[in-house]
């Protein structure tokens, strides 16, 4: 599938943004990326590379952490949105699922889902969507009236995604959905995300440290390091890249898993930019 990056007007375009925290700390140094309508785009990189900051710059949550987009633009269907508040961004159809799930622990599962629809008028459509979320996440059905603080981590991640879905988004920003979850659960959650993408036409921008699984589901990928995008391309191209294999996928050139026993000494991690 051609990811469509570059051709036609993208759903979301991040143009060379710079983000500064607390007026002094430069965190993003010119990040550009595109998400096409209905696509899944992966944003890869190690801890502290700037993935979460990029997502927060898009969703407007940056300002809650004293961060600010000082240069560049974020465009939604061609219109700039980087000056708008988080609530307005949600109204446009962009919802972020934050790292670490951030469900409302003291609210029940049902109530959590209802908060997700805060920006929409109530009524039948809302009730139908609530049922829709439960059909995507059948595990949550038995937990409807349980406080979200008492459900398992996997269920909380599902709840966080379901809550985002209640806003009827066109783009979901997923921040580390695999964090702290068993591999089986991770696969289950990614399958559901892929289904949402197909059936509900929700585009996904996926920030992940787990590059293997992210590239399996994404059509296009960006690799970040120290606040910059250092590499981008089709998911296939990226997973074939020697350096990516070495540093993110833990594979050798022949595609076998590398054992620590074979490594006599550690090679210094490659830096793309000085």
């Amino acid at each position: 599938m051609s990811a469509g990056n570059g051709t036609g007007r993208p759903l979301l375009a991040v143009n060379n943004i710079e983000v500064i925290y607390d007026h002094v700390i430069l965190v993003l140094k010119g990040v550009s990326l595109r998400v096409p309508e209905g696509g899944i785009v992966a944003l890869l990189g190690a801890n502290g590379a700037g993935k979460s900051t990029t997502l927060k710059a898009i969703s407007g949550l940056l300002r809650t952490e004293r961060g600010d987009v000082t240069k560049g633009t974020v465009e939604w269907r061609g219109a700039p949105i980087h000056r708008e508040g988080a609530a307005d961004v949600v109204r446009h159809g962009i919802v972020q699922v934050m790292e670490g799930r951030h469900v409302f622990e003291h609210l029940t599962v049902d109530e959590n889902l209802l908060t997700g629809a805060y920006t929409r008028p109530g009524g039948d459509a809302l009730r139908r969507d609530l049922d829709l979320v439960y059909t995507y996440f059948p595990r949550l059905t038995q937990r409807r009236h349980v406080r979200a603080g008492y459900i398992s981590g996997g269920e909380q991640q599902m709840l966080a995604i379901g809550r985002a879905l209640m806003a009827r988004p066109r783009l979901m920003l997923l921040d580390e959905p695999s964090m702290g979850l068993a591999p089986m659960l991770v696969a289950e959650i990614f399958d559901i995300v892929a289904r949402l993408n197909r059936e509900e036409n929700v585009a996904v921008l996926l920030a992940e440290q787990n590059a293997t699984i992210a590239l399996k589901y994404a059509q296009y990928g960006y690799v970040m390091e120290s606040g910059r995008v250092v590499l981008d391309g089709d998911a296939r191209t990226i997973s074939d890249n020697e350096d990516i294999k070495e540093f993110y996928l833990g594979l050798t050139g022949v595609g076998q898993r590398k054992s620590y026993r074979d490594v006599k000494h550690y090679r210094r991690r490659k830096r793309w930019l000085s």
Partner: peptide
């Protein structure tokens, strides 16, 4: 009351 940032995140 529970989580201000998450509340902003869902558009409250």
């Amino acid at each position: 009351a529970n989580d201000q940032q998450a509340a902003m995140g869902v558009g409250i």
